[in-house]
Amino acid sequence: MVGSDVFRAKFFSLYLPLTLYLVFLLFPFYWMLIVSFKPTNDLFDMKFSPFWIQQFTLENYLYLFQNTDFITWLKNTLIVSIVSTILSLVCSIFIGYALARLRFPGSNFLGLGIFLAYLVPPTLLFLPLAQVISELGLNNTYWALILTYPTQLIPFASWLLMGYFRTIPKEIEESAMADGCSRIQILFRMVLPLSVPGLLSAGIFCFTLCWNEFLYALIFMSSGSMKTIPVGTVSDLIKADTLFWGALMASAVLGSFPIAFIYSFFVKHYVSGLTAGAVKG
């Protein structure tokens, strides 16, 4: 009897609200997933419940691979995301370490500047940036995104890494320095190996931000063969009269999957990274 009371208390205080939250937060993904596995005709059949699959099909995914440029979008997204992430991480390691450890003229100002740059939204700058990119002739090249994404990523990653570097005891570095290590050696041989979780979260963050970015990619990569997954899906699969709902949802599912996959493995680092950098920074 006692056991069932405990269960009932736990049911109402934990499992029931948790279930409601899960339904609220996951329903759109469930919807996208089932629509992507339905034949188009089933969508129009209002007799059946739309919340379940009557007839399972992969035709939407086949359509996506055979009749659209999805593979090209995937390739573009990967190239841009990986290069921007690596570039931003390398810069951010130096900036974050300098902010965490070094006192130099203007270091406070630089810290403030980095933080403010993190808050500057793309919508504030995209018109002038569009003009710069087109004057440099970079429209529809990878460079357009590889050069602009780090302006968003570096402030953020530096901030996060700074928080991480500060958690490493200074004394270790001081004694290494007394033993004759240079700053660079300390950074690469001691600080970085100790900061692997921080680097991992910064890297995942950067990669995710690149993968998810929409506005710059929409403006700078308008040509068919240079689109990223979000832009390609939105601009090529939504056509005025005929909506390929199945293919649209299939593309959204495939485009979301890598990010969802990465996060389900690194959710712990995500939380600790957030505490180390963003919140307590």
Partner: peptide, 16 residues
């Protein structure tokens, strides 16, 4: 699972 709405590309979840 509960993080999904925040981390998945907004452009794609908006399609849902």
């Amino acid at each position: 699972a509960v993080m999904m709405p925040w981390i998945v590309p907004t452009a794609l979840s908006s399609l849902g």
